[in-house]
Nucleic acid binder design. Sequence first.
DNA 1: TCCCGAAGTTCGATTTAAATG
DNA 2: GCATTTAAATCGAACTTCGGG
Lengths: 357, 357
Amino acid sequence: MPRSKNTDTAATIKDVAKESGFSATTVSIVLNNAPLARYIPPKTKAQIEKAAKRLGYRPNIFARSLRSKRTHTVGVMVFDMTDPYCTLILRGIENALYQESYLPILTDVQNERSRFERYLEMLLGRQVEGLIVIANWLYTDINLLSDLQKTKTSTVMIGREVGAGTFSSVIVDNEAGGALAYEHLYSLGHRDIAVLRGPKTLSDSDPRWQGVRKFAQSKKIEIDPRLVLDLPDSREPMSCFENGYKLVTELLKRKRTFSAILAFDDLSALGSLRALAKAGIRVPEDCSVVGFDDIPTASVCTPLLTTVRQPMEPMGSQAVHILLEAMQAMQETKAFAPVHRRLAPELVVRESSGRVG
Amino acid sequence: MPRSKNTDTAATIKDVAKESGFSATTVSIVLNNAPLARYIPPKTKAQIEKAAKRLGYRPNIFARSLRSKRTHTVGVMVFDMTDPYCTLILRGIENALYQESYLPILTDVQNERSRFERYLEMLLGRQVEGLIVIANWLYTDINLLSDLQKTKTSTVMIGREVGAGTFSSVIVDNEAGGALAYEHLYSLGHRDIAVLRGPKTLSDSDPRWQGVRKFAQSKKIEIDPRLVLDLPDSREPMSCFENGYKLVTELLKRKRTFSAILAFDDLSALGSLRALAKAGIRVPEDCSVVGFDDIPTASVCTPLLTTVRQPMEPMGSQAVHILLEAMQAMQETKAFAPVHRRLAPELVVRESSGRVG
DNA sequence: TCCCGAAGTTCGATTTAAATG
DNA sequence: GCATTTAAATCGAACTTCGGG
């Protein structure tokens, strides 16, 4: 009755073989339920399984991956983990992968090219079977894309539609969102709406503005260009807050009249809130404010922020599902045409918007 | 001149051997700068390195780990990734590991026991060389600890001091923080200070309160027990916001007079801000509010929140350094006594606190 | 055990081909 | 040929040992 085991090191397949009295081959076949397992009598299977359990056998994934070339991991690259916009997307990714027994390896690029390169190397070195990139960074760097394109790893981008021929993507429908926000304010009776447009280099900026413009056009509304302000470019994640504050403060000084602010995102909306408070303007009684994103802060600030929500968790899980399909295709060496998903945003009415007074 | 290469699959050490004209052994020795590399002439080294680069050779980490038993990865378990308190700690961890060329494998337990168990299995299966646990969860589950203790993997806990005999830990000095907050309000002239104590099951709650109490004692201040409120237990991450709001609203109804609120954390401070705003009480003119943590929201809400900052990034990096030492000791099969670090908090004075009016 | 390099074994699991009755 | 089992080759790198200058 072989019993003593080296307790210091994990049990291997050979230990299970010895313990059960069968060969390593048979153990492998049984435990993996391989095709050949058909021919193995239930009794043998039971014995092997019992032995494996008794020893607490856990296959060594390095040996396994070395042989099978499969790793059951996917790489996830975030450009800035501290961006509140990320965490819920990560949640969505995480949950979807968890169900499929895939392990995400998460890397935080911190908006640095060198980190991007090094982490990409690391992930490829670990033979991730796929890649999800959360592109919440503030500048387009075409070189990063080419790095990515050289990879033959299936890739899905979240938050950006770039290299559309190569990568799949999941983004929010920014145009619809812009229209949603404007429509909300318009339907509350607002006619003098200040618009804070996003930084030029950010790909979300233009479509949101187009949404606003098209809605205005359809209603034959004239947008006063003096009420349209531009947030400057910056790599600082908090810059939109600062700049939202500054732009609204200046606008106030110029004595332009407006009864509402349509901000580019929640951060600039928060900056607006601050500027209005400093000027003694009540929200929403004297002025309404609408944000975009629905970051966690939007539901704990005072007043609670009305905003256009990006469906972050669905974006994450959709990305995973696309990726899994692409990986599947890759596995079977079939072609896979990149898919581009555009999810609908949702208006969340809270306290910062109200009827024009 | 051997040139054609199977472009479909990654180059192996044998390919480099063939390309350079040396044996796989020599290639391995050179590329790893192993002890024997001393004897190898620079010319050989150069040739091999050039060949490696030419082929884009990247060692297969599965083969490597299989042999060497080293993985250069550490597992990181977070109990709730969406908790804003986490991300900066993760930054600290990430940066410290990056410098040492370790890769973190991050898992989000989502406060679920089953996920904890499964992820722990996964991480151990991947032979992480160490484990960092960010214990920002709201309930003590002693069983989790025993799961962890069974592991012989070096472990550092952040945010909690439990199983002190087994695990190292890094926490903020909550007592000092409580005192800091109270002292700040006291020095601004406040004498009627409402205190929102944390949920009973949360390990941070008591020491913060002790800090307050001891400071009051030292100044011979009598704390009015009717101004001391308790946040109820809850597993909901946002509960402190809701409950802070409720407690302050009720306190206001009872017509207790107070000129300041010392909240358990930033979320309950935010809830307080909201309650005060609804009641038409201005902050800080009519009432001061101090939080704890310094979550990102604290610097974008209106008014900006005065708070006691936890040094999140240092906490993360300290944890890494402790872990690295523990791993080193483990490697050399030396004993390693758990170390317990308690970092000093820092008062951040912003806009929500002012002289008693 | 100086200097240089290579053949062969090992890690743990999978898989192919083949050996039993 | 069939059901049942297994020895041996394989994955890629690292390490031990060995053989000539």
